[in-house]
Amino acid sequence: MTHPIDPDRLAGILAFLQGAERLKHTLRSGFTSGGRPESTAEHSWRLALMIALFARDLPGVDLERLLKLALVHDLGEAISGDVPATAQRADDGREARERADMQTLCAPLPEDLRAQMLDLWEEYAAAATPEARLAKGFDKLETILQHAAGANPADFDYAFNLAYGTERTDAHPLLRAIREAADRATRARM
């Protein structure tokens, strides 16, 4: 017979999940095809779905780790929100703020899960593993594809997509192939 979960562990996990729920109403600068602002949760879901669909084209990659990285990469935005890609700068302090937000969000978790979540976030931020580099590339591609599909304002800058994240999407042949299709979709919207 299975032993029930420790009540403190259960409470910590549920508290974390309630905090992560805020991603559902954390809005991004992109728009859905229906014309409403996209949430960070929607972005992360489609990013994970994209990775799952291309899994067979990623031999030798730890798919479970890649999916976890995709699910964790924007969790800190539940606290301070999203910074639009067009407004991001290398020296804007965003990474430090997101790290602090991630630590705050993960605080209720049991120690083993807190360490796992923070380690995944750090791995993604550093892009030091093949899975983290792929996660970053897929992240850029999901954003570009959303921009190409969204019911965007009349003044939307589609040209931004054509240069956005190229260093990340050049990291793997599959990413480059998806990028070519995404760029075609972008040009069709311009």
Results as ranks from 00 to 15, higher is better:
M102K: 00
A78V: 05
R99P: 01
P130F: 06
E64M: 11
P130V: 05
W45T: 12
S80A: 13
L47S: 09
L63V: 10
Q103L: 13
G81V: 03
C106D: 00
T129K: 02
E98N: 13
Y124D: 09
L49P: 05
T86W: 13
A55M: 06
R89K: 15
G35W: 05
Q103E: 15
Y124M: 04
E111K: 02
A132E: 01
A96C: 09
L63S: 08
R65G: 05
P130W: 03
A132L: 01
A96F: 11
P59Q: 10
E111N: 01
L109D: 00
R94I: 08
L113M: 13
F54M: 10
D74M: 02
G60S: 11
A107P: 00
L58G: 09
G60A: 10
R99K: 11
D112I: 04
C106L: 01
T129L: 02
D112F: 08
L71A: 14
P59R: 07
A78C: 05
L134Q: 00
T86S: 10
E111A: 08
P130L: 06
A128Y: 02
D119P: 00
A126R: 14
T86C: 06
G93P: 05
A90T: 14
R65H: 14
D101N: 11
M117L: 14
G93I: 09
V83F: 08
E64Q: 15
P84D: 07
A127H: 15
R99M: 11
V61R: 06
E95R: 15
E123G: 00
P84I: 06
E111R: 05
Y124S: 01
G35Q: 13
A127V: 03
G81A: 04
P110Q: 03
I79G: 04
A128E: 14
R94L: 15
T40G: 10
D101Q: 03
E122T: 13
M50A: 10
E95D: 11
A52Y: 08
A126L: 12
A78W: 00
E98T: 11
F54Q: 13
R114W: 03
P37R: 15
D92C: 07
A78M: 05
E42C: 09
L118C: 07
T104H: 10
